[in-house]
Each structure stands twice: as structure tokens, then as C-alpha cells.
Write a protein that binds this DNA or RNA. Structure first.
Length: 648
RNA sequence: GCUGAUGUGGCUCAAUGGCAGAGCAGCUCAUUCGUAAUGAGCAGGUUGUCGGUUCGAUUCCGACCAUCAGCUCCA
């Protein structure tokens, strides 16, 4: 007998070799029916795992992450089984659970149109109804290979071939007549996937490599009951309404034009105003923290990019202004980054260790010729404005300066109300990738260990991204998810030990020797276009007062109140408020409705009473009518909110 | 760049191998109104662009442009 510690510290005894599923069954029919996977000693396992010794066991249901993962993984197997039933010639690649559901990559001549997805979904429901038992078995690599070859599963064979010769057993899962190579864990049977929806069919390269064949990827989501699926789909619809690419256009923040081109958004007055507010905020804050503003050219000769290495790495992604022969004539290119231009500022004189750190910031407009399929709203564009900076310092200073760079980024994010939504990624090089990265293994090990030490010192919780580093150094990326759950980099701080040497940047140290400074590349608020996009989504267009392009709208009730309304507006403007008067001969309700739809933070209703008393009737966007105030009282209240950058 | 989808007035959406229609927005007039839509009238489109098939194309076909989802990429 073995002793199994269950949830809440309860200890029960079982026969050695009892499976987790049998334990769940012994604990109650409800738990048995809900069981998806288990945790043994804190690690997630399949429910079929026999318990061989005393252990702590937790049965995971759909409510826990591990259980959800198994549930969605099984859903993907059901998807694959349905596809194989309908299209026996289809070849299966991989089909994992993801953060929000599951997918399966499939090689099939038939294109999975909407109608076909519906057919597959119907077949999945049939498989669920059949409530097939799911069993696990293991084979040595050579027998496993034989099995998948018999099935004609060439992609599975490729996966197994990688494990051949290591002596490990390859696991399979079987449900009905469908067998799939898989590490698991999986549900006990297919009958538990009560509600399923296939959400999309897209393309995806085999093994994530664009040199490989493009397969078809079917995405889906599933739940234990239909009501949860319905709620999930409704939430997705709600999220779509916040999408900056839709809302930002509707509210008049930006537009695009076919005549101008892809990835070249036109910021309309509202968008341009918010961007100006953000820029002033960033530049002022950076000045307070010892950053010096530069203004460098939007283009430069190819020579400068050849030294930095960008010409080799990113020439295709640069807008090169070609006039003639590259060999004999000057070739200019629009700048894709500001680094080497700010280095020229550093190089204007010889530097002493006493001069360091030198911190240069710039609100820099950059140009990158992104691939046509990459462009998206304000998130990924071909011309953008970065709050960019480069900091030159000694090795002793690098930790403190890095912390300073991080501090300002965190301060920005907190002020904007985005901080709670971000996560950190420590982006490292991939030693296997000989093409992308410059420098030696020693240089990389040093730079990464410096950054790793700093991050650990600061107690930052990060994920490691192998192969995500810049070609010249490791990065701390501050990641954020958009309204659809897609993650992007908002802010990045990089340590660079390579480019100073390439550009001959030196300083004279205390002992008289010449050394290359460390360079930190960093952004404090990221790219303004992208930040604006995320703010639109975060606030669903209802910006905090300090950021709102129009802060106050004065709404006269009848035409005879227009003069007083304009007086109120002039008073507001004299205190720096962005205010307008809606002087159209419309009914009050009509004008308020429009102001609400435009997300104006405050509407000031003025009629006979207000004009008489020198007051305004305050309507707050988020609340409604909040009563009457004297004009100076309203102004001082809201001035305080603007000064503190209140997020309301 | 790749896979797939989409493109009809400013917006949301109809319709059709044979004169393209509605609501909202806009404009005009009337209404002067107290916290999310006053009424009436008017105007607005070479159906993304170019080419092909056809007696006739917005509809069918092709190329391109743009937009969307995803992949790849992101200095």
C-alpha cells in the first residue's frame, strides 16, 4: 500500500500501481467526471499514471491550467480524428493546446473553407458523442517509426526520427481507431468535450520555418459546457469592439489611404494630439532624469549602416534611395534606427570616464520596409516614431544605468495605466543561429550574464526567449497583449558590447587606458503609434482626462446660452484645457449622446440657471449628471486631475 | 513574403449577367428644447483599380491595390 496525500492534506491509502484516475473515481463521481489531468508532487501528469510510491496527488479539472491544457489537447486530437475520417489522405503534423484553445497543423489538398470547417466540427461532435475511451501505449523508436510509416504520417515520422537512438520510449494515444503520436496528457475519453467550436483556418509553416511547406492550421476552442463556449465567443465579440484598428478609425484617431500605401497611417487631429501629449510627457520626464535630447537626420549614407552591421542584416528592410551605382556613388537610406547617428554625437570629442554616463534621447521617426503581410493598424507600420535613447557608460555603471532605464519605463507604464498588463522577456541569442548574430560566444556569454545578473538583482520575473535577441546584444523586452491576446513588444532595453568597438567609441579610464563603453539601447514608452493603439484598446477609446484629445465640451441648452458657453470655454482654455462648444441648434439629449459616443470626459451643460449663477452643470462621461459647480471650482478640481495624471 | 478570406456612398448593410437600394451620418428648412437620438425635405455611388469574357459586367475570369485572420519576420 502507498500513502497518497490529497487536497487539504487528507491522506488515503491505495494499492501500489493504482492510477490517478482510479483515485479520482474513489473520491467521487463528480470529480471523476470532471478530471482532466493530475499533479503528482507538483508536476502535471496523465490521469493514467500509476502511483508507485507515497506522493502528493492533485486531480486537475478544467478549472486548473493543467486540466484545461489536457482538455484542449484532447480536443485537438478529436479535431485530427475528424479530419482523418473525412479526408483519409490528410497528413497530420502537430496539434498542441495553446493559451486560448488548441490547433492542429494538417497537410491536406482540400482547402479548409468555412463550410468544410463546419463539416469537421459536426464530425468532432459525433466523436464526442461516441465517447471513445482514450488509451496510452509506448513503443521503442524503431517500432514507433514503423507504425507511423504504415499510417503514411510523414511528419510524425520526422518527429520520431529525432528521438531515435536515444533509447527512449515513444508514447501514443489511441481513441477508437485513431492513433496519434503524443506525449500527453489527455482526458480519459472523448465524451467530456461537451462544447467545441472551430474558429479559424489559416496557413502555418511546418516546424515554423518559412523555407518549409505551408500546412493548414485549424484553430478551435472547447469547454465543458455550451454556456461557457457561448460566453467565450460573446467575450471575443466584445473585444473586437475595442480593437484599435476599428475603434481608432471610428473615433477619428487615424486613417489609412490606398494612395499613401500600406503601413503608413495618417494620424488625424485626435490621434496627433494624444501623440503630442505623450511626447511632451516623455521628453520632459527624460530631461528630469538626465537625458539629453538629440535631433539626428532621417537618412544617412550606406557607409554608416555597413559599420553598424544593419546593411548586412536588414538591407531588404530598409528604404534605400538609389540614384546610381552603389559602387561609385553615394547611396542614402532612410534610417531604420537611430543608434549610429547618436554615436556620432558621442564621437565629437574624446571622452573621459568622468563624462560617463552619457545619455542621449530622441523622439525619432524611423522607416522600415516591413513585409507586406506584417502591417497592421498602428501596431506594425513602415514609418513610426520611437522614444529612443542610447546610453554610454562604464562596466561599473551598467547595472545602475540599466535600472534607471527600467525605472523610467515602469514609471511611464504605470502613469498610462498599462503596467498591470505587461510581462518581461529576457531575449537571448541562439548559439545555433550562425547567420543572425555577430560577435563571439565569449562576448555573448558576458553580455547575457551581465543582463541576467541585473534582472535577478532587480527581482524581475521574466521568461527567456532564445533567439529573440538583437543581432548585437541581449534584450529585456516588455511585452503586452492586444485585445485579441496577441503579444507584442512595447518597450525594449538592450545591452550592447559590440557596436562601440565597431564605431571606435572610446573613453579614457582612470588609469589612462582607452576602453569601449557599454551601450544601452532603450525606449521609455516604446513606439508612439503602438502605444497609442494599446491605449485605445485599454480604455476602449475613453482616455483619462490628461490624455483625452478633447477634455471638456460645453453644451448650451438653447441658442441664447451660446455666449455664456463660449465664455466658459475661454475660461477653460486659459487654464490649458482642450475644450469646445457644441453650438448647433440641436436638442440637449442629441448633443450629449454624441459627446458620450465620442468619449468626451466632461460635458458641461449650461442654461438659464447656470448663466445666471456663473456655474456649470457637470456631466461626467462615466457617471452621468454629477451636479452643479461654480466654474472656478470645476477648473481647479480638474486641473488637479490633469496634474496628477489621474486615471479615472 | 506565404496560406486563406474580404472590398457596394463617410459608416453599417441590401440587391442583381439588363436603370444599384435602405438606415445612420451630411446639407437645407422648421423647432429653442434641462442630461444618450425632434420633424420634414435634399443631396450623395463609373460597386477598390486595371484588363479579359459578353450584345451588355457591379455580378463571371485574371492581374494589381487595400483590409482582415494566421504563419514567417520585427534592428
Amino acid at each position: 500500500m502507498i500513502r497518497v496525500e490529497l487536497k487539504g492534506g487528507v491522506i488515503k491509502e491505495y494499492e501500489r500501481g493504482t492510477t490517478a484516475l482510479e483515485v479520482a473515481k474513489s473520491l467521487g463521481a463528480g470529480l471523476y467526471k470532471a478530471a482532466c489531468a493530475c499533479k503528482i508532487g507538483g508536476k502535471v501528469f496523465d490521469l493514467r499514471t500509476p502511483l508507485q510510491e507515497d506522493c502528493a496527488l492533485e486531480i486537475l479539472t478544467f478549472e486548473e491550467a493543467g486540466g484545461k491544457h489536457a482538455f484542449w489537447h484532447t480536443s485537438s486530437h478529436i479535431l485530427a480524428q475528424a479530419v482523418k475520417r473525412l479526408y483519409p489522405a490528410a497528413k497530420l503534423a502537430i496539434g498542441p493546446a495553446i493559451d486560448n484553445g488548441f490547433y492542429y497543423d494538417i497537410d491536406c489538398d482540400t482547402s479548409f473553407s468555412q463550410e468544410i470547417l463546419e463539416k469537421i466540427e459536426a464530425e468532432m461532435k459525433a466523436i464526442v458523442k461516441e465517447s471513445l475511451e482514450i488509451t496510452r501505449f509506448e513503443l521503442p523508436a524503431d517500432e514507433a517509426l514503423k507504425l507511423v510509416n504504415e499510417q503514411g504520417e510523414i511528419y510524425k515520422a520526422e518527429l520520431i526520427a529525432e528521438h531515435a537512438g536515444k533509447g527512449e520510449l515513444i508514447s501514443f494515444y489511441k481513441q477508437g481507431d485513431f492513433v496519434d503520436l503524443c506525449a500527453g496528457p489527455h482526458l480519459p475519453d472523448t465524451g467530456r468535450v461537451k462544447a467545441v467550436k472551430l474558429t479559424a483556418s489559416t496557413g502555418a509553416y511546418w516546424r515554423g520555418d518559412s523555407k518549409n511547406k505551408m500546412l493548414q492550421r485549424i484553430y478551435g476552442i472547447s469547454f465543458t459546457k455550451q454556456a461557457d463556449l457561448d460566453a467565450h465567443l460573446a467575450a471575443l465579440e466584445e473585444a473586437k469592439k475595442r480593437d484599435h484598428n476599428k475603434l481608432g478609425r471610428e473615433l477619428g484617431y487615424f486613417t489609412t489611404s490606398e494612395l499613401v500605401g500600406q503601413g503608413l497611417p495618417i494620424l488625424l487631429p485626435k490621434g496627433a494630439r494624444v501623440m503630442q501629449i505623450l511626447q511632451r510627457f516623455v521628453e520632459d520626464e527624460e530631461q528630469k532624469r538626465g537625458w539629453e535630447l538629440t535631433k539626428t537626420p532621417y537618412m544617412g549614407k550606406s557607409d554608416i549602416y555597413k559599420i553598424s552591421g544593419h546593411w548586412d542584416h536588414y538591407r531588404d528592410g530598409m528604404f534605400v534611395l538609389e540614384h546610381g551605382d552603389e559602387e561609385t556613388e553615394e547611396v542614402l537610406a532612410l534610417r531604420p534606427m537611430t543608434c549610429p547617428f547618436q554615436y556620432q554625437a558621442y564621437l565629437t570629442k574624446s571622452r573621459s570616464y568622468r563624462d560617463l554616463p552619457i545619455r542621449y534621447n530622441e523622439t525619432s521617426t524611423l522607416f522600415r520596409n516591413e513585409a507586406s503581410g506584417e502591417m497592421h493598424g498602428l501596431i506594425r507600420v513602415r514609418q513610426f516614431t520611437l522614444s529612443e535613447g542610447h546610453l554610454m557608460c562604464t562596466p561599473e555603471q551598467v547595472e545602475g544605468e540599466f535600472r534607471g532605464c527600467l525605472d523610467i519605463a515602469i514609471y511611464m507604464l504605470k502613469t498610462l495605466g498599462l503596467y498591470e498588463d505587461v510581462s518581461y522577456r529576457f531575449s537571448q541569442w541562439d548559439p545555433e543561429d550562425k547567420e543572425k548574430y555577430i560577435g563571439t560566444k565569449e562576448q555573448w556569454d558576458t553580455a547575457q550574464s551581465v543582463m541576467g545578473k541585473i534582472l535577478d538583482h532587480l527581482g524581475i520575473d521574466y521568461k527567456i526567449g532564445v533567439g529573440e535577441a538583437a543581432f548585437y546584444g541581449p534584450k529585456l523586452d516588455i511585452q503586452i497583449k492586444n485585445v485579441h491576446g496577441k503579444e507584442d513588444t512595447l518597450i525594449t532595453i538592450q545591452i550592447d558590447m559590440m557596436l562601440a568597438e565597431k564605431f571606435g567609441m572610446e573613453y579614457v579610464d582612470a588609469d589612462g587606458s582607452k576602453k569601449n563603453p557599454y551601450i544601452i539601447h532603450r525606449s521609455s514608452i516604446g513606439c508612439y503609434e503602438r502605444t497609442l493603439a494599446l491605449l485605445i484598446e485599454k480604455y476602449a477609446g475613453a482616455f483619462p482626462l490628461w490624455l483625452a484629445p478633447e477634455q471638456v465640451r460645453v453644451v448650451p441648452i438653447a441658442d441664447r446660452h451660446q455666449e455664456y458657453a463660449r465664455e466658459v470655454r475661454r475660461e477653460l482654455e486659459s487654464f490649458g484645457f482642450r475644450a469646445t462648444v457644441d453650438d448647433r441648434s440641436e436638442k440637449l439629449g442629441y448633443k450629449l449622446r454624441e459627446a458620450q459616443l465620442e468619449r468626451i470626459p466632461y460635458m458641461l451643460v449650461v442654461g438659464d440657471k447656470e448663466a445666471e449663477e456663473g456655474t456649470v452643470s457637470v456631466r461626467k462621461r462615466s457617471v452621468g449628471d454629477v451636479g452643479t459647480q461654480k466654474v472656478p471650482a470645476f477648473i481647479s478640481d480638474k486641473l488637479a486631475d490633469v496634474t496628477t495624471k489621474l486615471i479615472d
